[in-house]
Amino acid sequence: MKRNMKKTTIVLALAALLGLGACSTTKKLEGNIAIDGSSTVYPVTEAVAEEFNAQYPDVKVSVGFSGTGGGMSKFIAKEIDIANASRKIKSSEAEAATAAGIEYLEIKVGFDGLSILVNPENDWVTSLTVEQLKEMWKPGSTIMNWSDIDPTWPNEKIVFYAPGVDSGTFDYFTEAIVGELDAMRSDYTGSEDDNVLVQGIAGDKYAIGFFGFAYYEENADKLKLVGVDKGAGAVVPSFETIANGTYAPLSRPLYIYVNKASLEREEVLEFVTFYLENAKELVADVGYVPLPDADYEASLELLK
């Protein structure tokens, strides 16, 4: 009887050990991960954080949306571990980071296609060349009416809509089209909220504006996409043309910048790994265009 009990105890102990072993295969992580930056990248990182927390509920993840510039300033002040950015880090920001002793990884997580949009009743424009776009949007532009671009087009005033000057979207467009960061004609209607731009263009036959492809997708019935011609024929943005790079120069990459010192912490390393492993699905979930698989794998290699 006593012997039996001993045996049972040993068996139970062994079972317990095995059980523990099984448990430890899913790591139990704790700690804080602070993220801030672009409001364009925010939905992607929010989706990743949501799924990450479902698996690791004890890691305290916070994601802010103070804009790419605001996020970079916090990143340089070492207030956050990861900065979301809808443009590449500026050289001035990179210098400040180096001066602060920060080494970082730049990781591409997806694409957003900046789309040029007009009203659906606009039946004269189907595409514009990069040169025409530049003439329209550059500071001091003399183009006021549609007929100034093409004499066969209506002699009506163009109404311009553009995102807020603090957004990475604005930065990227001015750099890619006008050729100079933040250079833009001044007589346009601006809004930090892209849904306001959607309403504006949807309600005005002679309007033109630009914003992220995701906003077009959700409002496709109210807007008309304009193709962009870089010299090799007009290309209309779509999941394919944005991902394969033919929609140029307005297919813009979305980034996260990770402080290398933070990567030493297990929870941050796990988070970034998780980000890259699930980005393909989550990026598409929130309306952006995922990178080719090889790019995510290459970034995962960087982490090792």
């Binding site: 925010y42 890691v59 305290k60 916070s62 994601v63 802010g64 949306f65 605001g70």
Partner: peptide, 22 residues
């Protein structure tokens, strides 16, 4: 609040006034 670091996604409830917030 956006300026001082208020977040949109916070996956936990604050324990103290020193925690990050939405």
């Amino acid at each position: 609040l956006i300026m001082v670091g208020g977040a949109g996604y916070v996956g936990f409830l604050p324990d103290s006034p020193m925690d990050v917030f939405s």
